[in-house]
Design a protein around this nucleic acid. Sequence first.
DNA 1: ACAATATGTCAGCTATGTTGACATATTTTT
DNA 2: AAAAATATGTCAACATAGCTGACATATTGT
Lengths: 161, 161
Amino acid sequence: MAGQANKKADADTSPAGTDITDAVDFEIIELFFFAYRDFTSDPDVILEKRGFGRAHHRVLHFVDREPGMTVADLLDTLRITKQSLARVLKQLIDSGYIHQVAGPEDRRQRKLYTTKEGKTLARALAEPQSRRIAEALAKTGPGARDTIKRFLAGMKTAEEN
Amino acid sequence: MAGQANKKADADTSPAGTDITDAVDFEIIELFFFAYRDFTSDPDVILEKRGFGRAHHRVLHFVDREPGMTVADLLDTLRITKQSLARVLKQLIDSGYIHQVAGPEDRRQRKLYTTKEGKTLARALAEPQSRRIAEALAKTGPGARDTIKRFLAGMKTAEEN
DNA sequence: ACAATATGTCAGCTATGTTGACATATTTTT
DNA sequence: AAAAATATGTCAACATAGCTGACATATTGT
């Protein structure tokens, strides 16, 4: 009884039917909304102290996780525009959390790295989120982590390239 | 190396103490980010046609799901301020997607309901999200839905009242 | 040389969040 | 009945983080 709800198909429009097809999964939709709402609010307290917002968090996070990534990589990951990124990135650089290095092959590129302070902040921001995840997984039961991973990966739009 | 990574373990690095605690679950953090990013982008196309944004979607969704909810209920659910809500709610009312009724017991209240058009739009917006969920669940495997439900519920901050 | 690319920056707009103050109608308390 | 509290609406002003389009600079590729 697991994998059949995605059939939707049936063009019949059953007159007396209105069977499965119509079922919209409001329950998961809402749970997902509340889960993400609270998950993202965890680091807000820390960010506010530094005068940063969630946009800074995302940039710092990905640069920390993928050292040496370029501005173009970041734009692609975050799916925002150059100007939106420029603002927060500049602030992170000016504040000493991220630094740039001209690409060794292509010197037009700016490879991005977190500084020591950047790493510390990135870790501090990830920590409460990680704790929330660990607690939720623990409550869910053994083996949950693998299921969650697969589900979340499946929710992401597949990349073409 | 699949389902045991939630014990954080590794332990090394630490001289004698600080073992478990340090591991931060970057993997789930990122998967959650990408999953939500793409999940919320589904309805954007439909919203744009009507000149609405995600804020309108959230209001419409909850009013549709809980007919008769008051403005105060909505503020509590969305965790935004009265003024933020007022803007989008007014637009939804003016456009004929939501209507208000003075509370029968307490006539200061404005009970909110979706109109026929509102229900239709709410359904149209939920549909692609629901499809995405169904597909992700199907790929995840049988029994996944219950695990996901428990996990997402666990990610939400518990309410005091 | 010329074209393309990676990045930076300027100006201005929009959506959605915020605060604080105040008005109105209604209900509750004194 | 008068006063206080509550639910909602609204005004003004502001902040953050998206967006577009245009253009400048350095560098690389043809």
